[in-house]
Amino acid sequence: MHRVAALALDGLVLLDFGAISQFFGHRHRDPEPENYELVVCTEGGGPVTSACGAAVGGHGDLDVLEQADTVIVPGYGPILEPLPERTASALHAAAERGCRMVSICTGAFALGHAGLLDGRRATTHWAVTADLRRLFPTATVEDNVLYVDDGRLLTSGGVAAGIDLCLHIVRSDFGAEVANKIARRTLVAPHRAGDQAQFVEYGHRPAEPADIDMARLLSWVEERLDRPLSVAEMAGHIGYSTRSFSRRFQAQFGTSPWRWVARQRILRARQLLESSDLTVEQIAARCGFETTVAFRRRFRELVHVSPSDYRRAFRTRSEAS
């Protein structure tokens, strides 16, 4: 059982907190094993006031962090003010112990005030990245990305980007199959890469009559990942011209259709490496790659290890769990 501790601070952003609760604390009716235990803590153990004024209580005081495997700080309000000394010390001690430290949205400021961003890569909501960079100049603040995985430190952009980071953590811990099952249950996209752009204010991109129906497109693409797929075919399936589809896709998802399909192929490959005994050559063919060399190159580019090393590492981790 992996213990996740959520630290609730005054001005708590409820949507961020809800994502943490859904992915790490929600008890499903499915018969699959429960992989996480979620505990919520506050300084003093009492309730905090959320951004909308509602009170949110915790399971305990900051000593909860001492038993955590992962600590997550959701977004909160007074980001420019230093943390209470006891809270900052508790976060720092958890990191020193080797705990995985995570923030959603403005929660990155809490990690910064605890001294955990020094020399590390991080991100936050696009509207306050300048403040994060100014307050913590030794951090490498990445603009307009969904999330940043810097080893034992993970940070995300605002609001919905926290969902993407939570799914990324589940996928890292328990594999693509488990993460995809949870994504389908939650009715969200199974995977958006961390370097994909955040959604910025609608005034920053041309208005479109309607957004692309991603669920319909994803279902169609998943059935055809073992064959060549062109942008024109995808556009035609949902009734767009190629040019209009490419423009809208880039504006809506922050990446090109071609790159998105490549990531879907690699996601399918990860599932097969985790759950089957197919050879790398067979997996390359089933995921639509013309050659095994091309598959290995793209897999390493996106996952940062070879397919064989990924399979070996995942199965070793699963056996240990």
Rank of each mutant, 00 (worst) to 15 (best):
E223T: 06
E223P: 01
L225G: 06
S230E: 11
V231R: 11
A232T: 15
A232D: 10
G239M: 01
Y240D: 10
T242F: 00
R243N: 12
R243S: 15
R243Q: 14
F245G: 01
S246D: 12
S246G: 11
F249M: 04
Q250W: 13
Q250M: 11
Q250N: 10
Q252L: 07
Q252M: 08
Q252H: 03
F253A: 03
G254V: 01
G254T: 02
T255P: 05
S256E: 03
P257Q: 05
W258F: 08
R259D: 14
V261R: 09
A262N: 05
R263I: 00
R265Y: 11
I266K: 01
R268W: 08
A269V: 01
Q271W: 09
L272C: 06
E274H: 06
S275W: 05
S276H: 05
D277V: 08
V280N: 12
E281M: 05
E281Q: 12
Q282V: 03
Q282I: 01
I283K: 10
R286F: 05
G288D: 10
G288L: 10
G288I: 14
V293M: 09
A294D: 14
R297P: 06
R297W: 00
R298A: 10
R298E: 15
F299I: 07
R300V: 04
R300P: 00
L302G: 00
V303N: 03
V303F: 02
H304N: 11
H304D: 08
